[in-house]
Nucleic acid binder design. Structure first.
Lengths: 211, 211
DNA sequence: GGCAGTCTAATACGAACGTATTGCCTCATA
DNA sequence: TATGAGGCAATACGTTCGTATTAGACTGCC
């Protein structure tokens, strides 16, 4: 725990290398190109090694999806702090858009797992978890940006700020993921600047209703 | 051409039965469960029949995606007419949400192809086409609802209504697809009433900025 | 009746898949 | 040093995949 040691419990380095290799394949060629052999080859190990760490392919996919969720959580949490609530919202949501190659990979991966979750209950559970978590985070940010105002106690003022924050967060998350979906699934139909402009337009519209 | 004959050129009835069978499999078990044998079995025909109408599996998938796009176009166009522009917008966007079993199937299918399009350029082209088309339709509806106002000439007044309509349409489509994505990929995390409320919240926020 | 063309089925082939089995190699511990 | 457990690789098995090949059944036309 002196320097950079993972506080996590039982994650072997070989295991994260395998997950990385898997996610690389997903980002580049899609989830249906993932096979035990491909993962082993991409990680430079044998099939037996993959089987040693993941007893079945489904377990391997679930572990990979969990890793994706962890990455999302890290990025969202890391983009939070700042004095301007509006800027915080923008920063968090920007992390979910494919604004550069790294984020485009992440979006492709996330989309692949989300699509599979539509017909795979085990993955749907994981997806529900990350949606809940990110939405709560966003709801706090919205509460700071428009629902709770600058300071002081609650009570009189707007209608129901808590409900509004949750609704705005749900909508903002959906719009951002929708923009990301459109961008990566249409091969350049939505430019990065158009994505950014749409996000700002969204925040304008959402925050205008709460001033 | 006397009664109910398709005006389309060369669409054999057996071919649409095959496409229907394929989309049924996609809606129920996902795109990666689609195989030539499964489609043939679901349609009650032999492998040879499938091969006769679709020389390769990729051609079969492309034809199925084209059929999906046609369905979306039909539904969006059918929901258009009405006196209230706001109601028209709501009706069109509601068609894209998984508000009942039929629409949930359609969303699952659309999502499956969109996810595959992220790493399949041939499908990305089709996806780009449908996005462009639906967005244009929505832009007109937004123009009628808030950009162009009630009547009369253009010129002075709001900023750039055409640009605003396109931006609002892009955002509304992204938010709706994002809501649909979250709903079907999380197994009930987003209820139908929450989807409807989010959509109304979205329209409120977008149209408020153009009055 | 013969015959070309389309439609349908049956079957075969090579490749890739997920998984099970087996056996080295390494290393901490007694 | 002996040993036993775990990390890692090699290989095999049975299945399923996409596609090719072949042949039979039905149609309209001469």
């Amino acid at each position: 725990m002196i320097l950079g040691v993972e506080p996590m419990s039982t994650v072997k380095p070989r295991q994260v290398a395998l997950t990385d290799a898997l996610l690389r394949i997903v980002a580049e060629h899609g989830l249906d190109q993932v096979s035990v052999r491909e993962v082993a080859s991409a990680a430079g190990v044998s099939i037996g090694t993959v089987q040693h760490y993941f007893p079945t392919k489904d377990a391997m996919l679930a572990a990979a999806f969990t890793e994706v969720v962890r990455r999302i959580r890290v990025r969202v949490a890391a983009a939070e702090p700042g004095p301007d609530p509006r800027a915080n919202l923008s920063a968090v949501l920007r992390e979910l858009l494919p604004l550069d190659a790294r984020r485009a990979d992440e979006v492709r991966i996330q989309l692949a797992f989300a699509a599979r979750a539509a017909t795979a209950p085990a993955l749907a559970d994981i997806q529900r978890g990350v949606l809940t978590e990110v939405m709560c985070e966003l709801a706090e940010a919205f509460s700071a940006a428009g629902g709770g105002g600058v300071a002081g106690g609650g009570g009189a003022g707007g209608g129901k700020p808590v409900e509004w924050s949750r609704s705005a967060a749900r909508l903002a998350l959906a719009a951002t993921d929708g923009l990301a979906l459109h961008a990566v699934s249409s091969g350049g139909w939505l430019s990065t600047s158009e994505q950014g402009a749409a996000l700002e337009h969204l925040l304008d519209a959402l925050l205008a209703g709460a001033e």
